[in-house]
Computed example of a mutant assay.
Amino acid sequence: MSTMPHHTPNNNLPEIDPDSLEHSARTAVYLQQLIKQQGSIPFRLWMHEALYAPGLGYYTSGNTKLGNERDQAVTQSPAGDFTTAPELSPWFARTLARQITQVHKASGTLDILEFGAGSGILAHDILAALDNPDINYFILELSPDLRARQQEKLSGFKNQVQWLSRLPERFEGCVIANEVLDAMPVELFQWEDNGTLAEKYVTLDNNSQFMLVNQPATAKLAEKIARRMPALPGYTSEINLQAEAWIHEMGRWLAKGVAFLIDYGFPQKEYYHPQRAQGTLMCHLRHHAHGNPLVYPGIQDITAHVDFTAMADAALEGGLEVLGYTSQANFLLNSGLMKLLSTLDPQDTARYAREIGPVQKLLSEAEMGELFKVLAIGFGIDEPLMGFSRGDRRHML
């Protein structure tokens, strides 16, 4: 068993208010008790509990901090821990709505199902853009706090929106998962110097501080990783078996329609590139990104990039078709973003600048345009999807 020392909180991280520190301390006690009962827990379980433990986890305790840059003065520093595309600009949802309309026509239904709807702003803007009272919008949300925020945000559409507590038995229509896969708990692994695979567990040191330790991986996990990458001594990365199972299961309940999976990530060759030897695990705290998942449990987000090849394979194994894969920038441009923006008046320079600035972030290679990808999977749709009409990268998966 080899160990990785526990890191003290990074001095570059922002000041945390006393209430948040107190909440994090309560979450830490809960996790310490869990580890004391079991000796050590797989990192996947640590990530799950730190994010989703009832009343304590980041997503279930009212601590989720989504920054909405649209409602802030330019001089303000951004609120929250991170900002998503829908929070950045309404043009993201308006463009996505054009692609949804095509799916609705092709599938003969007006239903939409969104997973993990955040503040509810994406649902709000899609419904406003589609402007059709016959559309049924379903939301599956694990966080009671976020569900309450969504209900408030969507009160104007209350006759059209329903919240689900479990997966539907059967669904036809359009499925949206924007930044959902990256928040699913991952297995963390490391190749040992002797060529064997270790899985990382979380345990306690002599001072009851959290620390990562390597334990021999199960034969099943070792076999899965070996099929995806060579044994590179010291190489650390992640595998998201929960996300793969979730997509595989979609093949059971998505009878007709398209699921759009929008997230940051890479194809497998890039994901397990020899130079990406520290993996992709990332934590977000008040708009500061850092790499230590063992600090500030319950008040920081923990994410990993998405292996889109693995997601496409899981879809195929579940009986779904892979209908498109491209960058967020390509997807938005193909879906008619520029046509929508042409309705803006360039003479109204203040408004024009306010609207275009965030759109440039959505499209820029240096920002979200290239890092974020869109994978479309589905069943029973015969026509090509507009979002992938140019620059489809399925051949790279």
Rank of each mutant, 00 (worst) to 15 (best):
F388E: 02
Q300R: 13
R394Y: 09
M47E: 14
G55Q: 00
G265Q: 11
G80P: 02
V322N: 11
P144L: 11
Q360C: 07
L34D: 08
F266R: 05
Y352H: 15
G39E: 15
A177I: 04
W191R: 01
S2Q: 06
N240T: 05
K65R: 08
L88E: 05
L254F: 02
Q37V: 13
K65M: 01
S327L: 10
L122T: 02
G324R: 05
P346A: 12
D145M: 03
S2I: 04
P274L: 10
E87V: 01
M47V: 09
L340R: 09
F388C: 01
E223I: 04
L232Y: 08
I112N: 08
Q102N: 01
G55P: 03
E383K: 00
H290Q: 08
H124L: 04
M311P: 07
L397H: 05
R166A: 15
P233F: 04
D111A: 15
E172R: 11
G156Q: 09
F43I: 14
K256P: 08
W46T: 12
A50H: 11
A123V: 02
S327K: 14
L88F: 02
A243M: 03
L281E: 09
S24D: 08
L130P: 00
T84I: 00
A50K: 07
M250Q: 05
G62W: 06
A259T: 07
N292F: 05
L341Y: 10
G336D: 02
A93H: 03
R170W: 15
D205Q: 07
F92D: 03
T218M: 00
P384A: 01
G80A: 06
V322F: 09
L241E: 11
D348V: 08
L261C: 11
Q33T: 15
T101V: 03
W246Q: 01
Y235A: 09
A259W: 06
R252W: 00
I100D: 06
H288C: 08
G357M: 15
K65H: 01
K65N: 00
N214P: 02
P42R: 13
E367L: 05
Q328A: 10
L197P: 11
G291N: 14
I262N: 03
G369M: 10
I35A: 14
E249A: 00
G234D: 08
P5Q: 13
I121M: 05
H288R: 09
V213C: 13
A123S: 06
Q300S: 14
F210I: 11
L127W: 03
V161Q: 04
F138T: 03
L110G: 05
